[in-house]
Design a protein around this nucleic acid. Structure first.
Length: 560
DNA sequence: GACGGCTCCAAA
DNA sequence: AACTTTTGGAGCCGTC
């Protein structure tokens, strides 16, 4: 395997061939900025793994120049994993003092003064010398010395492939019909108002609400004002959440809920969102791979890609002659728990296609809804309500699965670290958490101290309990996407990304591929193959299945 | 006027 | 229907 490192030099860019341990292999090739993309394209024919500090920066400019790469090592994402992982805890990388590689992608995005996407003259300090080379060697040593190099190696490969996918999706964009989005907005809110005025249908709803509450100046966006007005009307509630208000019977409730719904649509995905996020018929979200502690992606920049409401997905329309293939992994997290724990009975319960129906058939609970709510309780750590009551009933039938999450919870309560299937470890609780635990166990601790400490310990336990499941599910999704990216590239016949089937959207356990209508069958097969391979990569011979729900649609609103 | 904390809601 | 996890963003409101 050949690695080629990429880093900035004064007045140009260096390409340096490296051996698997990071040793230099020959002299660096220095190229001018304008020759960078062609030089990468030429070397790509040897299928190297590109080593760089930050995929989002280097790969964005390559894509603009229509240069695609197969594989890379994203040093910053890899560093974050290796720094924390229990599998590399004794490495030089993990035991070194903090350094410039430690900042998260999100933190860097939130410091706009540091650099802009294409401003390669003003690189962060860590990029100006052979720092990239030294960091790569340090990482290779950490991997080689890990308990299970293949395991952490797969995670780093998947994480880096995810960064390539994110960059390509940000480049391609999600097809978006601004005219249809506008129609959706007009049908709910009325015509687009001038400047900051309230749309007519929102205004009409507000006037109905004010009349019903006899509060002519009420601003329902202010929770405290709203609570007071509701109290005057005899409605005693402690919060203004929609689900609380739904329980009330009063003529003001209907317009109030309607107002909240319309106001949400306007502020989150209204005309302003359309103006700032959609250009040339494409929504260009900003994905942040590794942006969530569990390894899930985050999104930033106002687009809210990972919270795209179902209400406006009808504006996501395939190009003429093209289709969307939408696939989501059904019941992913409970299936991940079954596989993680190697609980054969739970794996078996999921083998027929509906895990929850399988749990009912296994006799643990009576109905499918109970199975679902009990599993959610197991994965999230529910203590009260129906979920908290039902969850223990799973223990008899599925002792290994439940023991796995219970042990993760106990470890978190003790302040210990837990680790996902491929080796991403949870953060340690902060100094305040430890201080509170120490206060409570000390001789001077009051009953209030002890109670607060117990609450915080249990809260951290719920986090670690969920971490192993959510984090391992995120790893499965990364493997799925990495496999799918390769499968789609094989279908492309050498055509450019946007001229052949390509990924346009990803949301935790769901992918959307935009492709010519004639290719939908091949694309669906590639998606299914990629999912099977992801299961084998992560869980080997265990007969666990990850069934997909696949829809072929013209617009995203029609999927599900 | 900037900033942080709070409430509420969208997604998985 | 929530309960119980992880997020990002808008708007409000008190503080500086």
């Amino acid at each position: 395997m050949v690695f080629v490192a990429v880093f900035s030099l004064p007045g140009g860019i260096a390409l340096q061939r490296l051996a698997h341990d990071g040793a230099l292999d020959g002299d660096a090739q220095a190229v001018a900025e304008v020759d960078f993309a062609p030089a990468v394209a030429a070397l790509e024919r040897q299928h190297p793994r590109w080593v760089w500090d930050d995929t989002s920066r280097w790969y964005a400019r390559l894509l603009e120049a229509h240069v695609r790469v197969e594989r890379c090592v994203d040093l910053r994402l890899s560093h974050a994993i290796l720094r924390n992982s229990s599998l590399t805890a004794g490495s030089a990388l993990a035991t070194a003092p903090g350094c410039s590689w430690d900042g998260s992608a999100l933190e860097r995005l939130q410091k706009p003064t540091e650099h802009t996407l294409f401003d390669l003259d003003e690189m962060p300090a860590n990029d100006v010398t052979e720092d990239t080379l030294a960091e790569f060697a340090t990482q290779r040593a950490a991997i080689a010395g890990a308990e299970d190099p293949a395991r952490i190696g797969l995670l780093l490969a998947a994480e880096s492939a995810g960064a390539l996918v994110a960059a390509e999706m940000m480049y391609s964009g999600l097809p978006w019909r601004a005219d249809i989005h506008n129609e959706i907005l007009e049908s709910h809110l009325g015509p687009r108002p001038i400047s900051g005025r309230r749309p007519v249908l929102l205004d009409a709803t507000l006037r109905r609400l004010r009349a019903e509450l006899e509060a002519p100046a009420l601003n329902p966006d202010s929770p405290s004002e709203l609570l007071k007005a509701l109290a005057v009307a005899g409605l005693m509630v402690t919060s203004t959440r929609s689900w609380e208000l739904k329980k009330l019977k009063h003529p003001a409730i209907e317009p109030l809920l309607e107002y909240k719904k319309l106001a949400r649509l306007l502020t989150a995905n209204g005309w302003h969102w359309l103006d700032s996020n959609v250009r040339d018929g494409r929504f260009h979200p900003e994905y942040v791979p590794g942006g969530v502690v569990t390894g899930r992606w985050a999104s930033t920049g106002g687009g809210g890609a990972l919270q795209l409401p179902k209400q406006i997905r009808g504006a996501v329309v395939a190009d003429p002659g093209w289709k969307f293939v939408v696939a989501d992994a059904s019941q992913l997290e409970p299936r991940i728990l079954a596989a993680l724990s190697g609980d054969r009975r739970m794996v078996e319960a999921g083998s027929a296609g509906d895990l929850y129906a399988g749990i009912v058939a296994g006799g643990a609970v009576e109905t499918r809804d109970q199975a679902k709510v009990a599993m959610l309780g197991a994965m999230y750590g529910a203590t009260s309500g129906e979920s908290g009551r039902l969850m223990p009933r799973l223990t008899k039938t599925y002792p290994r699965a439940i023991a796995m999450v219970e042990e993760a919870a106990r470890a978190g309560e003790r302040g210990e670290v837990v680790t996902t299937r491929l080796g991403r470890s949870s953060p340690r609780p902060g100094a305040a958490w430890h201080a509170n635990q120490a206060d409570a166990s000390g001789e001077t601790g009051t009953e209030a101290d002890a109670s607060r400490a117990r609450g915080q310990a249990r809260s951290w336990g719920r986090f670690t309990r969920n971490f192993i499941v959510q984090g391992s599910a995120a790893e499965w999704a990364l493997c799925w996407m990495a496999n799918l990216r390769r499968g789609l590239q094989e279908l492309s016949g050498g055509a450019w990304i946007t001229d052949s089937p390509h990924l346009v959207f990803f949301m935790h356990d769901e992918v959307v591929v935009h492709c010519p209508a004639s290719r939908v069958d091949a694309v669906e097969a590639a998606i299914r193959t990629a999912a099977e391979e992801a299961g084998q990569l992560m869980f080997g011979a265990l007969p666990v299945t990850f069934p997909l729900t696949v829809a072929i649609v013209d617009d995203y609103g029609k999927a599900k």
